[in-house]
Design a protein around this nucleic acid. Sequence first.
DNA 1: CTCTTAACTGGAAACGTTTGCTATAGGCAA
DNA 2: TTGCCTATAGCAAACGTTTCCAGTTAAGAG
Lengths: 346, 346
Amino acid sequence: MPSEKSENGRSVNQRVTIREVAAKAEVALSSVSRALSGHPDVSDEMRKRVKDVADELGYEPNLVAQSLRSGVTRTIGFVVRDINNPMFALLARSCEQELRRNGYSMILVNSDRNIENENRNFSLLRRRRVDGIIASLVSEDSPYIKKNLAGPRCPIVLLDREVKGINASAVLADHAAGVHQAVTQLIKAGHREIAFVTGSNNVYPTRNRLQGFTKAFEDANLKVQPDLMAIGGFDADYALSHARILLHRNPAPTAILAGGHGALMGISRALKEKNLTMGKEIAFIALDQLPYLEVFSDNISTVYRDTEAIGREAAILILEGIEGEKPRVSVIETEFIERASSQGSI
Amino acid sequence: MPSEKSENGRSVNQRVTIREVAAKAEVALSSVSRALSGHPDVSDEMRKRVKDVADELGYEPNLVAQSLRSGVTRTIGFVVRDINNPMFALLARSCEQELRRNGYSMILVNSDRNIENENRNFSLLRRRRVDGIIASLVSEDSPYIKKNLAGPRCPIVLLDREVKGINASAVLADHAAGVHQAVTQLIKAGHREIAFVTGSNNVYPTRNRLQGFTKAFEDANLKVQPDLMAIGGFDADYALSHARILLHRNPAPTAILAGGHGALMGISRALKEKNLTMGKEIAFIALDQLPYLEVFSDNISTVYRDTEAIGREAAILILEGIEGEKPRVSVIETEFIERASSQGSI
DNA sequence: CTCTTAACTGGAAACGTTTGCTATAGGCAA
DNA sequence: TTGCCTATAGCAAACGTTTCCAGTTAAGAG
């Protein structure tokens, strides 16, 4: 392994460039470039000669220079609304895997539920000249949204967001179907006071879930009770305060749906305060694929969506965009998985 | 907000360059560069003029070109051994936050517990000319390790790894102390058959933990029982098969320590198979800060380490390295947090 | 034997910045 | 007035690649 030793007299701090390879191989720069990049106009002999010298010198092409010249960075930006939500870790991971399989790297940036941060993140990624951006937006109507989504030559994939007037690709989960199944099941089991804690109404998943929720009541010829729906924020503190109110209601809810990680955190704290156990005194259903749920407790009923599939699909869509294909929307199914916690005391 | 509209006649696909800013402001390229980068040799009038034009045109400097010219990418590579371990999500997140606060981006790559992947990851990051690499290595003696850690001009921070003959910085957790506390506590409570499932011996954390483990027995004038120590792999399957063996032992262990995420997964499955509950028939202690533990069940005793502090510290060390400071090792304390699960049936 | 063509190879210009050096202008001291 | 210094601005050369274009060689056709 000759490339391991610090190459004759040359300083170990200096990186070897294509120029040195060319010199040592006694060929032109352009030939080195072609030989190593798999260009067809190169003789076998030349290619071998160059490759040998490159290996010998431990040449590693400078991707920065390649990017500048070729205009392509082979990098995708991933803007995530709230990295504290473990669902996004799962999502980003599967997405990164798929991208890497296709020769792309990922730069992940976190907006921390803040629109200004989000805007800065987009700007950063543009300055880095990423080839595409996958984004989980804080909201669907930020003042910067037009600027950031209609950018020059940079395909966008939106995650679970609908922004009108933008032709970006998107991966949407069909939350409504799973929620409909779940609530229908609860109703069948005799539940009537079904509470729902979920995010704010200005994003697609909330709207979509509520559609499924209300439709389940309609289909059962029941009226949905508005004061059992806590809509307005994804964070745990919000969920906690609203869960407290819900639990003190009269009549008390006999079942409760948690719309995502934050809601689950808040609700589980509120339940503990009242010494209630999920699935015992109150039926409980979690939305989203929360990795720790599957990992640790196997009795929580869930409206499942395949988060890793979403990540992969996002990668596929962004690669399509880079290839110049038209943006398109991809829908991921959800499914109610019934386990012990949705039984409750009824 | 004039920069939002697609700037007079110019194609929206073309990015505006420093050259166009210079032309429109009727000054030299170099003046634009200096004005925007805060160089001192610029008059106030020039700076204002340039900034106004830059804003007007929506100029966003090309970081690729900047990097090529300046030799600095303001990017840190993060090589993670196994992204499936949720601890790393936590770690990477806090690290990224700290880096970003200092104007750096992070590229995260996953080795998937494979040495070849790890080697490729290092190579990729070098080609991208990252300014530094933070790495959680698969093992401490891969054949590529010398090449990858003694690289040119690129500071390295190792996470929980000791590699001799390399002068890289490192963040090490003092696992031994926490494990010692935990085991001592168990012994005091009357436990004698204490099992330990942990990773392979060729990495620092395992060795370090075992030191704490055996020392606790020595300090109590007891002999550690080698057949209760399952050493050899971090993955859940390994842990599962070994936990099965341990649970069938005679006399059965009355307490069990899980060395990290994989071990915990395996053990919890093995316990379920035998219909045992953590903290009931068998005392249970988890090592590492596993986010889902804190989040979901509040009764698991833990040898806690502040994972986010590790991430921050890694960021600090890598930034020091970039500043040209000498590598150094930073130690993070661990602490036994006693909760219900370590009571067991004794 | 010459001409055409194919198959390579080399030279040099770009990509968008930063930065060292040089030039100009005005201010101030002599 | 002259000379020098300071503050500022411009020019042009890098950074390490890719890629267009032109040139060379050898082979095959006539």
